[in-house]
Design a protein around this nucleic acid. Structure first.
Length: 260
DNA sequence: ATGTCATGGCACCCATGA
């Protein structure tokens, strides 16, 4: 089973890319999408379903928005990350059952600039995510939390660690919150299989020729529960879509799990 | 640190977020 995550930076603009990705013979069984930038009712369901996929989404106007696309039926469990959900109107979390697997598509707050309320919102959101992960672990359920974490776990995940030192994506508090997820018992799939990787990025800014210079960051991650980590057989970053015309600034990250 | 994009309200540019 192949599961991928991809921040498409506008589902409307990137629909041709999404369809091309889903039509390929390397297409994933499950795809987690972020930054739809459209309302739930504007998700192009018919085009996706025409390729034999199911789709569930939680969107909002202009910003955020996440979706789960799957070859087998999707049963939605949560449309918001628990904790503060009454006050948190941002569409950043969607959790669902796909057969006997629980998956969540998440779009973690960017958190910049750090001196604004955006940074504590990010850290608070990460606390809520850790609480949710702990609850799922307590249920002893196989699950995957995938998406745009907006965190570079270590300096190896940043093309210029010194220049990015004060950014919310690399700040020690952000990294500590990410490690807290791992310390609960989750496995970050790419790092587990490629612990010494260098320049393995999943995002390249549109500005300053970042893609052409390979000035990237690794901020898109797949976190696995213990039972799924035991089944992990491959995890790669598919750089090809980042090179397509009018690309998203992110590229897909995927993993393959052995049959249970 | 910025050589870019996408959005929406408003009006055919500009602010905002990333």
């Amino acid at each position: 089973m192949k599961i991928a995550t991809w921040n498409v930076n506008s589902l409307k603009v990137r629909l041709p890319h999404l369809l091309r990705y889903l039509e390929a013979d390397t297409a994933p069984d499950v795809l987690l999408l972020q930054e739809l930038k459209c309302q739930t009712e504007d998700v192009p369901r018919a085009e996706i379903e025409a390729l034999g996929y199911h789709v569930e989404a939680v969107g909002q106007k202009t910003y955020n928005g996440v979706a789960i696309v799957s070859k087998t039926p999707i049963s939605v469990v949560l449309r918001r990350l628990p904790g503060d959900e009454a006050a948190d109107e941002q569409a950043r979390y969607l959790e669902a059952d796909i057969a006997d697997l629980r998956v969540a598509a998440l779009y973690l707050p960017n958190g910049n600039p750090v001196e604004t309320e955006k940074y504590p919102y990010k850290l608070r959101w990460m606390e809520r995510l850790a609480d949710r992960a702990a609850a799922l672990l307590a249920e002893d359920r196989p699950f995957l939390l995938g998406g745009d974490y907006n965190i570079c776990p270590t300096d190896a995940d940043v093309y210029d660690p010194v220049g990015w030192r004060d950014d919310a994506l690399v700040r020690p508090e952000s990294r500590a919150a990410f490690r807290r997820l791992l310390h609960l018992g989750l496995t970050e799939a790419f790092h587990a299989l490629h612990p010494h990787a260098t320049r393995a990025f999943s995002f390249w800014d549109y500005q300053a020729g970042a893609w052409q210079r390979d000035n990237g960051l690794r901020i898109d991650h797949l976190l696995l529960s213990p039972a799924l980590a035991d089944r992990l057989e491959a995890c790669e970053i598919d750089k090809e879509p980042r090179g397509w015309e009018r690309a998203s600034d992110h590229t897909p990250v995927w993993c393959r799990l052995r049959a249970a």
